[in-house]
Write a protein that binds this DNA or RNA. Structure first.
Lengths: 220, 220
DNA sequence: CGCGTACAAACAGTATACAGTTTGGCGCAA
DNA sequence: TTGCGCCAAACTGTATACTGTTTGTACGCG
């Protein structure tokens, strides 16, 4: 047991369960888990040197949050059919324009600066060798403006289906036209942030989601 | 162990965990769990004659879904402050009008009939001795029209914050004016369903949520 | 050669046990 | 009487073990 020596700072109370959860959450969100992978608690537990229980807890939490599904043979990624993906696009159209508008009103200069950097990074990595760099940059950009959304409940709702976006990414993976669309959307959104124009942010977020849906429909 | 004898119908595979989860979910949603209650896994397990683990799993699922929070002394209801409640009202304004509109387009005659009955029941129990009858009727009405929403993802999002409505109910509990408002809203919504007027459903759902928020602000 | 059946392994669910931590109360001293 | 500290109980997190079910497979029968 590696318990903290310094009891005066109980900030690091991360249990095995929480660490494993965080670990696999980021792995899934970064697309490091393949659809054919089978995540078995006993196997993971053995590789980490812990018992099944914390692993099980972490996996089942991921199941409840929609990142995984149970099967009779280990945990695996859920298969998002076309209908579900389109349903999420509808959700995004309802939530994200408003969220972007609120974020513009609430953004601090620090966030604005960080957002500018993140956009530059996304633009530079757009044609990168490793496409994952581009997606990581997009993830950073997205998380940044979301962090400026004052409505916590709204932000959590959006976070909740964020993982599903990964499935759509797989469809448009490597499509230069899609990437250009993403960067163009980010540029407009960034401009709206700098102009403090929440209505413009609302509008360009609306178009951004519609464009994404159209691109998805082209590909599926 | 009470396993099914008939193996040809494996439909009923409900584990202890799932039964306990369902049980406490409905209890919470019906307001049968008081804010001062402390839900301790060992105690519940003993009363049900099962071990801690299924109870723990169920409770932690409820925590992840926002119905409960952990404390150093058992699980308990989260405290919804005014800010959170208002944030949820904003979410509801974004999601429910659209959901109602979609539901109108998708409602079957059976649902329409059931909805009519449910409304009659709500209207009748509005001034009931036991106000819980009225809330139960409202719950039925709400679940009915939600069941007609074709967008599963949207429906699940709305379900997710349903429990929080309980907290608002506590504030407006016993306020005859609020109840009249609820019934009036239901009447309009029902009319929209019968007229197959999805735009009207959208509009009266919008007004319904705004009215609810206004009433809440009067009381808090 | 194809189909069905039975067996073994893999895995999920549940039970039990134990350790570490927090909490509230009680006793002791000032 | 009040403040301090210690102790026991309560509770969470983790480990280990056992059971029942599902799945893949191999063997036997047609």
């Amino acid at each position: 047991m590696q318990t903290d020596v310094n009891k005066k700072i109980p900030a690091r109370k991360l249990s095995h369960r929480d660490r494993i959860y965080q670990d696999y959450l980021t792995r899934i969100q970064r697309g490091e888990v393949a659809p054919e992978d089978r995540l078995v608690d006993t196997t993971i537990a053995a590789s980490l040197g812990v018992s099944r229980m914390p692993v099980r807890d972490a996996m089942m939490r991921l199941v409840h949050e929609g990142y995984l599904i149970t099967s009779s043979r280990g945990f695996k990624l859920p298969v998002w059919d076309k209908k579900s993906v389109l349903e999420v696009f509808e959700l995004r159209r309802l939530l994200e324009p408003r969220a972007a508008g609120l974020a513009v009103q609430n953004a601090t200069p620090e966030i604005l600066d960080a957002l500018t950097d993140a956009f530059a990074n996304a633009e530079n990595t757009m044609a990168s060798d490793d496409i994952r760099h581009f997606y990581r940059a997009c993830e950073v950009f997205r998380n940044l403006w979301l962090s400026a959304v004052p409505n916590t409940q709204l932000r959590q709702m959006i976070d909740r289906y964020l993982s599903q976006i990964q499935a759509v990414r797989m469809v448009t993976m490597g499509d230069a036209e899609s990437h250009a669309l993403i960067v163009a959307g980010q540029r407009q959104l960034l401009a709206a942030f700098h102009a403090k124009d929440s209505l413009k942010a609302f509008d360009c977020m609306t178009r951004y989601v519609y464009d994404g849906e159209a691109k998805y429909l082209e590909r599926v």
